[in-house]
Design a protein around this nucleic acid. Structure first.
Lengths: 134, 134
DNA sequence: CCGGATTTGTACGTATGTATT
DNA sequence: GAATACATACGTACAAATCCG
């Protein structure tokens, strides 16, 4: 229940609610969230507050939003094992705007940048790879 | 220059401008961005549009915002080498709300979750570690 | 294919609260 | 205490994408 007297922003309270429903499976992967208008009405909020809540979940990689379509719980894609070669290293970071477009990455999805022993680098979508060391 | 006739949202155009100034060093690490009010006036936008632009940059990990203080270009912290042990693997993802608070992570900073050979896992701040394989 | 309904995106204005300097 | 700066929240309006009959 969203309570204005609590010392937590209303949109954060709504995000907490939705996050809980997702983690408990009440909103399963692929399932649509109620529309922004519906969420606003059922929780007594204005639409901007609802949008802020959903923006939080998007940044966490929990949901995906498509214009004119709606917001859905993100489905986990399979991660390909990627062996980290001897003498190489890897860092995780958020993609640049260009990288997000190039790799068709959703909001809230980091990239993995591998630097090989020869100094060259490669960038991989963070939700599709798992670095391994056999 | 921000141009309403262009087919790109005004707040995205402003984000592009600021992103460029950051990448070119005109806004160096640690440097403060103009205040939201100033940016709004100088570019002829309303403050909500300016806030959207800055929110984009925050999500990309380019800037940090502190209430009552302002927004500054993020300074890169040193990354500690972390050897990926034999038989382990690692994934990159965005932190949960709790993890962000626990590790005191800025917006736009992913985490690295290592799964060890015995099945146990550990989570590291994505901006402070570099996975290595000697 | 078209049109209408639904849904999210963009943008403005306003007001008030709270943290930092 | 005052000034500055960001955070939260409401309301409104129109644009644009998608879906469905």
């Amino acid at each position: 229940m969203i309570d204005p007297r609590r010392d937590r922003a209303l949109y954060r309270q709504l995000a907490d609610l939705l996050r809980q429903q997702i983690s408990e499976g009440e909103l399963a992967p692929g399932a649509p969230l109620p529309s922004e208008t519906t969420l606003a009405q059922t929780h007594g909020l204005a639409r901007p507050a609802v949008r802020q809540a959903i923006a939080l979940l998007r940044a966490e990689g929990l949901v995906t939003t498509s214009r004119g379509y709606g917001t859905r719980v993100r489905e986990q894609v399979e991660r390909k094992p990627l062996e980290l070669p001897t003498g190489s290293s890897a860092v995780a970071r958020m993609p640049s705007d260009a990288e997000r477009i190039e790799h068709d990455l959703d909001d809230g999805v980091p990239v993995v940048e591998v630097q090989f022993a020869d100094g060259s680098t490669a960038v991989y979508p963070g939700d599709r790879v798992r670095l391994t060391r056999p």
